[in-house]
Design a protein around this nucleic acid. Structure first.
Lengths: 114, 114
DNA sequence: TTGCGTTATATAAATAAAAACATAACGAAT
DNA sequence: ATTCGTTATGTTTTTATTTATATAACGCAA
């Protein structure tokens, strides 16, 4: 094998009692719900089943004291979902975190010299 | 639900062409091989099957230009495995990385105020 | 030369995770 | 009242992952 080029990568997430409640994927889901106003559309965009998306949203709502998404069924368009103010804060804070992580990864790539 | 306590957690790993080749679990495996001189014992300690451990070792050896573990079968004790000098370097560098990551997590916990 | 414990490898079985499918509830619009 | 598209939820099926099982190779020691 010719000398490969190594990359440093990483992830951060938020957990409570060892249970992951917010990470990269869930935040993307929130953003897409925010943009589309629909859990279904967000799920389609991320190529996951509606059920899986709904379960994730439901789980987040359960874990946070204040829900991150509210939704209603029926009505114009069949129903809708909106990211709450709290949800927006969650997204923003996670973004700040990810930005920091990227800096960290860039800063520490030099540590590996394999 | 009563107000939960949130923790910030994370992982880093080394990859090449989007394929993970070294992370937290594999490094622990290397360390246990180093300590026990046996892939089997390391696997038992980590409660994984011998096959899985062997596959991981094999994969690492394939990805690095120099193997991280060498092994021989037969002989006293039935066989043995040793972590190479290169493997030791890999372990050390990853440890340095993990230490930095922990500092990062500690330093940035304040960013989340959910 | 037989037994032992391990490496090395393949295949089968079992579990777990994900996807697919089905169906009810809902309210606006027609 | 019926249609529509979505939320909400459970169940079934499929796929992927993990574990278990089996077997050969090996070299030392008895």
């Amino acid at each position: 094998m010719s000398k490969p080029v190594f990359k440093l990568n990483g992830r951060v997430w938020i957990e409570t009692n060892n249970e992951k409640i917010l990470g990269h994927g869930r935040v993307e889901l929130l953003e897409r719900i925010q943009a589309s106003g629909s859990i279904r559309q967000a799920a389609l965009q991320m190529k996951m089943s509606y059920k899986q998306a709904w379960d994730l949203v439901n789980h987040m709502n359960d874990m946070f004291e204040t829900p991150v998404v509210t939704s209603q069924r029926g009505g114009k368009g069949g129903g809708s979902a909106v990211v709450t103010g709290h949800g927006v804060k969650v997204i923003e804070q996670f973004h700040a975190l990810q930005k920091k992580l990227q800096e960290f990864l860039d800063d520490n790539l030099h540590l590996i010299q394999l």
